[in-house]
Amino acid sequence: MTAATTIGGTLSPASQGAEVLRAEGLSKRFGGLKAVQDVSFTHHQGEILAVIGPNGAGKTTLLNLLSGVYRPSAGRLHLMGRDVTDQPMEARCHAGLGRAFQIVRPFPEMTVHENVTVGALFGKPGQRLPEARERAWALLERTGLAAHADKAAHELTLLQDKRLEVARALATNPSVLLLDEVMAGLRPGEAQEAVALVRGVRESGVSVLFIEHIMPVVRDLADRVVVMDQGQVLAQGTYREVTADPRVVSAYLGTEEGLQA
């Protein structure tokens, strides 16, 4: 396989389908609010896993627990077979976790190219600047941002900012890529491009976990779906299985997103 496999170093073709991410009873409270409650799931090598659920279900908080922005109130997290529950964000990144934020966070005083270079340079230990710059260029081309490479990041449109989020996360050369609603607000054609991009990412050996509201995208992309509601996992399974689940249907009834199966 390609990039991620060789650089991640821990994967071999034999371990294909092995688990890359395993959450065991992850919980997070904010004061009295149980934002994430006893969430367990396993993410396998090469798999595209979708996390769906109504607004406020705790999806972003779950991603914050995975990437280490928050420390869980309870539960363990294993990344590439290692317990990383007590590891800080940067160590998880080095261990193979990449993340694109829902609310975009470009470094405002850097150019687009510099933004991506940061990921390429520090995402894995021992990278050198010239190579990191080159890889940043390649990623900008792959994500359709090359023409904006020299713009200051704050000059981008929101859509371009979202692409930048993805490019920067990919630049860290992750084994698992976490995407938080990167397609929200895209026009159908653009969403198709994004879907193609995510497929390409998976082809290159990266496992993808994405949060998304657009149901056709979930149906087209996801190998498996985790449904969250009020901090808890409501159901997991294939798209067909979870959308047939009456609890999932009732959770979505009355929410503005609806289930556009």
Partner: peptide, 11 residues
């Protein structure tokens, strides 16, 4: 320019 973001990117 963004300490937490930098850390998530491995800095």
């Amino acid at each position: 320019q963004g300490e937490e973001t930098a850390r998530v990117l491995g800095v």
